[in-house]
Amino acid sequence: MLIHPMPDPIAFSIGPLQVHWYGLMYLLAFAQFIALGRLRIRQPHIAAVGWKKEDLDDMLFYGVLGVVIGGRLGEILFYNPSYYFANPADMIAVWKGGMSFHGGFLGVLIAMYIWGRKRGRHLMDIMDFIAPMVPLGYAAGRLGNFINAELPGRVADASLPWAMIWPNVDNLPRHPSPIYQMLVDGILLFIVLWFFARKPRPRMAVAGMFSLLYGCARFFTEYFRTPDYNVSFGGITISAGQMLSVPMIVLGIALLIVAYKRNTVTSPA
């Protein structure tokens, strides 16, 4: 039986400065955004609408604020409001983990809207551009969750070769759900979306495909994760993560319908 290694959440220390693995994963996520962005602006249909290297650095600043502020607020409000309002000092302790993707998604939308107003770009053109760079950053975050021994999976059959005991939870074999979400919601989604976005698509199509695929992938992988809490609708019980993924699925379908109904490829802003 595999046992979670429970590594030290502190990767290394420099004097009084402690560098956490979770922070390193976010640094990796932002670095891959720049690296993939530089590849993306070389694609002919992206270069044709005026995207430049300078846009990446500017967007990253706004995006970091959107991810961190939105992700943390999402974790506080969507998942653990009672805990955080009882322990307000922990609201800013992001190095301990606890970032909501759905909150970060909303935060990035707001940040990109503000950046777009400043630069004269349509919000959906921005989201179409950055969508293929998001899944690998998400995957890095889920790896950080695993290192921190967060988001334990549901109890698994002991015969499952990769079932794992999480010593900080109990002695039962569990699914390594952060790894599932890293692989499916992150890496697999990146591969599909990157190839989809390599060709010119109507405005909103790439963003819509991301929203649809992420919502579906997250809804699926949530079946293997211990839910933060459950919600019931008409006798059907789903987890909080699944509930928050449903609007993304609906949004993705709506964006794709509108995009292909208009059937016009993005033109320069």
Rank of each mutant, 00 (worst) to 15 (best):
W194S: 09
P227H: 04
G252A: 13
M1N: 11
V19K: 09
D185G: 01
S13G: 11
L123Y: 08
R154A: 11
R218K: 10
L17E: 06
Y62H: 14
P81T: 00
G71R: 04
G153D: 03
G23A: 11
M124A: 15
H175C: 07
M6S: 15
N171D: 13
I238C: 01
D55R: 09
I92S: 11
M133R: 05
A149Y: 05
S82M: 12
M99T: 06
G23V: 00
G37H: 05
A149G: 11
P135S: 08
G241Y: 02
T266S: 15
G23W: 10
K261W: 15
A197Y: 05
N171H: 12
A31V: 13
L188V: 15
Y79M: 03
Y229A: 13
W162F: 15
G235Q: 10
P202D: 04
Q242K: 05
H4E: 06
I110T: 12
K261M: 12
L27P: 01
V67I: 14
G186I: 08
I69R: 00
A111P: 08
S82K: 14
I14Y: 09
A139Q: 00
D8S: 14
A139S: 09
L143W: 05
Q181P: 01
F196A: 00
N148S: 10
S159A: 14
I191T: 14
H102F: 10
L143D: 08
P176A: 09
Y214D: 01
I253C: 14
N168K: 14
Y79N: 06
K96N: 13
A111V: 05
F30K: 04
I3A: 10
G63Q: 09
P5H: 07
N230C: 12
S13R: 13
L17V: 15
A163Y: 03
W95M: 08
K52F: 02
V206K: 04
G37T: 02
R142D: 00
V94C: 01
F224C: 03
A269L: 10
E222T: 03
G208I: 06
L24D: 05
A89Q: 14
Y113G: 04
F220E: 08
A149H: 09
T237R: 09
G234I: 04
I69P: 01
P152F: 13
E222H: 01
L255P: 07
T237H: 06
K261N: 14
V246M: 12
C216A: 15
A131F: 03
P173T: 10
P81Y: 10
I92F: 15
P202E: 06
R119F: 13
I114C: 07
P7G: 09
M243C: 12
P7A: 07
I253M: 13
V155H: 02
L213D: 06
M1F: 11
I110K: 00
A205E: 03
K118Y: 13
R174N: 10
H102K: 07
L251N: 06
R154C: 04
V265M: 00
L143N: 01
V192P: 05
P200W: 06
G107S: 06
G63V: 05
F61M: 13
Q32F: 15
I34P: 07
G50F: 08
